[in-house]
Every structure is written in C-alpha cells, then in structure tokens.
C-alpha cells in the first residue's frame, strides 16, 4: 500500500483520538497518540482481516488497553464500527470505554489489566500453530507493561515453543503513569532482555509507518523465534505540548488546547 495512504490513516486516527477524548473529556490521550502510527500500519496494511469474525483472521491484542481510543479509531476507519457507535465513546451504556471490551466488533480480547494481553496472545499464537493456520498474532504492549511478571512468563513460553507467528510490538515511549520509566523501574537494556529470552529483536522508529511495515515483512523469514519489535515512540506524538509530558497520561484537554492540538496534527 502507498505510504501516503497509511500516513493519512494515521492522521485520521490522531484526529479521532483528539475529537473523541475532547468530547468525552477523557484522558489517556498521550498513550493513544504514541501508538497511532503503529495501529495505522497494522490496520491499513499488515493485518489480514477480511471480517472481524472470520476465524482465520490475524489476531490483534491491544495489551496496553488504555490506548483503546486509537484502536476504536482504526476500527471505525475500517468500517467495522459506525461513526455513530464511535461517538458513544465515554458515554453511559457504551461499548467504547477507556479499555477495549470484547463485545465490540474487532476486539479479539478485552484488556485493561496490564500484561494479560501478552499471555492471551501467546495462547492465540499456539492455537494457530496447532490448527496449522497461517494466521498471525500481533500484540501491542507498552514499555512499562514490561514491569509485569506475566510478560516474562509469556515471553519464555513463546520462545520455548518457537511461536514465530507471534509479533509483539513494544511502544517504547519511555514514560508511565507517574514518571519516566528510567526513574520508576529502569527497563534498560530492553533489547538485550528480549534477546536473552530468545526473541527475534528489532529496533525501529515507531512513527515511521514504512519502517514498521517493512520490519514485519522481514520477520517472516525467521520461522524459529517470536518477534519483538521495539518501537521508539514519542508519548503524545504530534501535539507539541503533550509530547513527553507525564501530565498527559491522564489529563483531558481544554477547548483552547483541543483547537491547538487539531491545528498541530494537520501539519
């Protein structure tokens, strides 16, 4: 697919994130913007999903469930949820909460408790292998999510069983709810940790859609290891006053901030 189409998909994800979080007066904006280009690359190009209930579809697990708004935007842009449904984000009786609910079309696993999605993805990848299916499993985790022990339980399992149909993308934005990861619980050297756990490790720019797509293509040649794609990202990417700012983990936007943000992502 042409790169400008994917970049346009990214732009639309960012636009929807800002519009919906502003309307709903809900936070987690920075985390969603951080993964917008990854989600765009997956949904506009990488994932083989004819329909969200096709058993042979690729699976996608948003293990960092608090970036759900980026996923909802993609599901809407794919046409699997309507604009009207999207507009219920953050309202009473909605299926579009702060974290993805399984009953929403396109959500394979409900998440929200960090680390669990990695474990679900491992089971999903094993299932595909047992069923001799070509389908792949993609799981998007946050860097701070690697604080969770379950991530490493699943990591050991996936590498022991050579789940090469499993692609984990780490959103390495270097910050978490209350601080920078280097100050809270230092993850470095993250690439070496994953290598030591037996994964096929790649370090990329998580805002370069072309690089995201090509690295996933290259991974196909390695049939012996699960793939860890460590994507360097900027928290709040695209909105200057949010970038790398801890406050924007939870903070909602004012009217002035919203209009400035919308102008900035246009550029």
């Amino acid at each position: 697919m042409e790169i400008n189409i994917i970049q346009n998909f990214s732009y639309n994800i960012r636009r929807i994130i800002l519009e919906r979080s502003y309307q709903a007066h809900v936070g987690h904006i920075g985390s969603a913007l951080s993964v917008a280009d990854i989600i765009a690359s997956l949904y506009a190009d990488v994932l083989n999903i004819d329909s969200p209930d096709d058993p042979s579809r690729d699976r996608f697990v948003l293990s960092k469930g608090h970036a759900a708004l980026a996923l909802y935007a993609a599901l809407c842009l794919k046409g699997w949820i309507s604009r009207e449904i999207l507009e219920t984000y953050g309202q009473d009786n909605t299926l579009l909460g702060v974290h993805p609910e399984r009953d929403l079309p396109g959500v394979d696993f409900g998440t929200g408790s960090l680390g669990m999605g990695m474990s679900y993805a491992t089971g999903a990848a094993l299932a595909a292998q047992l069923q001799k299916s070509e389908r792949r499993v993609f799981v998007l985790v946050s860097d701070a999510e690697c604080n969770e022990g379950i991530v490493w339980e699943a990591a050991m399992f996936a590498s022991h069983h050579k789940l090469s149909n499993m692609y984990m993308i780490i959103d390495l934005n270097s910050q978490q709810a209350l601080g920078y990861t280097k100050d809270v619980l230092d993850l470095t050297p993250l690439d070496q940790k994953w290598q030591a756990f037996g994964w096929d490790v790649h370090k990329i720019d998580g805002h370069n859609c072309g690089e995201i797509i090509s690295v996933i293509k290259d991974c196909r040649n390695n049939k012996k290891q699960p793939h860890a794609i460590i994507a360097n990202t900027k928290f709040g990417k695209g909105v200057s006053y949010m970038e790398n700012q801890i406050k924007w983990h939870y903070w909602p936007m004012s009217a002035v901030e919203f209009h400035q943000a919308m102008q900035e992502i246009e550029q």
């Binding site: 089971g123 299932a127 339980e153 699943a154 022991h160």
Partner: peptide, 19 residues
C-alpha cells in the same frame, strides 16, 4: 512450566480459537 498466570492466559487464547 511453573507459571500459573500464564497457564490461564494461554488457555484463554486457545479457547478463543476453539480449544
């Protein structure tokens, strides 16, 4: 292995696929 949390997570992923 001795990883009961992962056992349950794995089982969830397997059951979603029909096991």
């Amino acid at each position: 292995g001795v990883a009961e949390q992962n056992l349950l997570g794995l089982a969830t992923g397997l059951a979603e696929a029909g096991f």
